[in-house]
Amino acid sequence: MAELSPEVLVHVLVVDDCLVDRKIVDKLLKASAFKVTTVESGKKALEVLGMEEEKLDKPSVKDHDVNIILTDYCMPEMNGHDLLVAVKEDSRMKSIPVVIMSSEFNPQRISRCLTDGAQEFLQKPLKVKDLEKLRSYVKPAVPVPKVGTKRKALVDLMPESNEAERRPCPAGVAVA
């Protein structure tokens, strides 16, 4: 999977057979600063990912361009679960988070998708809070500092006298 830096947008591959739903999700994602590629089927998604059958042995330049896949469950030919399984079985793609969405609430379907590797199962229509979840599923490029890591205190925040004094904790500094 491609490494992300702060200036790089999260690239979402949206897979939905309904043109209206694709356009709504596309606009919602772009308004929240995501890079978006939309396709109308699971088979087209495999092409974008460089996973179509005749190219399975050859790496594609597009292999690691997508950071997360957001797919509808109910689609003809290849449903969202089938796409999920295809991605998770491919050694080059299995690290890409797959989020499935559906307008139908079916507990067995949801459980099956989560068991088979889906990061999340979202109810349609998508909401802005759902989009922030998507961002959190993408692995950051820079490791997040561990709690308790030492940082140098700014000199102007240190007391001038030897007496103990309570000062507000600067942002990002852990206090033990």
Rank of each mutant, 00 (worst) to 15 (best):
I110T: 04
D16M: 06
A45T: 08
S91P: 01
E77V: 05
F105L: 09
M93K: 14
P76C: 06
M93D: 01
M101C: 14
K30D: 04
I69Q: 05
N67D: 15
C74S: 03
D90V: 12
K58G: 00
I100F: 05
V87Y: 00
G80A: 06
Y73H: 13
M101W: 09
V85C: 02
E54K: 14
S102P: 12
N67R: 03
T38G: 11
H64D: 14
V14N: 00
Y73V: 13
V98L: 01
D63R: 05
T38V: 12
D21R: 03
I69N: 01
I68V: 15
D90I: 06
N79C: 05
E54F: 08
E54N: 03
P97H: 12
I69E: 01
H64W: 01
A31H: 05
E54P: 06
D17E: 10
L83H: 06
V20N: 09
E52M: 09
T37K: 11
I69F: 01
S41I: 03
T71D: 00
V99W: 11
G42W: 10
E77N: 04
P107V: 04
V20C: 01
V20L: 12
L84T: 10
E104A: 04
V87N: 04
D16A: 00
K58Q: 10
D21V: 11
